[in-house]
Design a protein around this nucleic acid. Structure first.
Lengths: 152, 152
DNA sequence: CTTGAAATTCCCAGATA
DNA sequence: TATCTGGGAATTTCAAG
């Protein structure tokens, strides 16, 4: 594997860019205590080695009317290879699903789902998730309030 | 409330910036079919009205050695106002906690937690979460695989 | 450090209500 | 006409060899 270890300066670069990805290189250099060109060289290296995977804008989801968030846990009826593949493929294609993790414990998957409201959520469950034969049970918790939501 | 409704052009701006937040304004303008100055004006308006909440770099978490992800659900012993406030304040201050949501159902909070391994996770539970008097029970599922993880 | 590119501001033109 | 949105030019700042 390529060398990915970041020194203290790299870490400061990462910290600044996590806080504001649209910083100019000059501004970034000043904040981390470098001049512009070594700062840019470090930044490119962080991008090329995959330490920085990309940059994204954080958009208020409510402007699309997606105001309701839910956490759904799913168990599959049997854990055959092909059923798992089918479930995961389906999940990747659904816009409502923000996150999906395979987990240890009594349930198989934890999903974070966004929708426009209760009715749309119900439709998502009935017409998408429950329609998959491999799904044995679904349990939903609705998010009343988000206390924290961080990037890495 | 200020006008937040985004028209088709605004939506294209958002889409491009979600895909790559470090696009230059000129590049952005070209992609959405505007010239630079109205594009920048729209961008600033989206920022000022809170449609765009910020920009962030996506950093590979493994460079910090934070390779293990867990979903923890927590119930509080009693739901008194001050206990809730105390719990939420504590959670906000812990670096291990990436997300924390107050949810409906049998459990009170769902947390996404990152740590360097089992030992560090155990320490997090014992020395931080379980030390809060208001916490009645904790249940952990470890993430074996992440099928999907999207931005809004 | 220099050269070319980008951001940002200001002003004007056309559409719309 | 008053308002909203796009375009272009000039100035300052930035990127990159």
């Amino acid at each position: 594997m390529a060398q990915k270890i970041a020194d203290e300066t790299d870490r400061r670069i990462l910290k600044e860019l996590v806080a504001d990805a649209r910083l100019t290189n000059n501004e970034l250099a000043e904040r981390v205590g470098l001049s512009a060109s070594p700062c840019l060289r470090r930044l490119r290296r962080l991008e090329e080695t995959g330490v920085i995977r990309g940059y994204t804008a954080l958009v208020d989801p409510s402007i699309d009317g997606w105001t309701m968030t839910a956490i759904a846990t799913v168990t599959l009826s049997r854990q055959h290879e092909d059923e798992i593949v089918m479930f995961e493929e389906a999940v990747r294609g659904w816009d409502e699903v923000l996150e999906c993790h395979l987990v240890t414990g009594s349930r198989d998957y934890v999903l974070k789902v966004m929708s426009a409201g209760l009715e749309q959520y119900e439709r998502f469950i009935k017409e998408k998730i429950a329609r998959l034969k491999c799904v044995a049970s679904i349990e939903t918790s609705f998010v009343m309030n988000t206390i924290k939501e961080r990037r890495v």
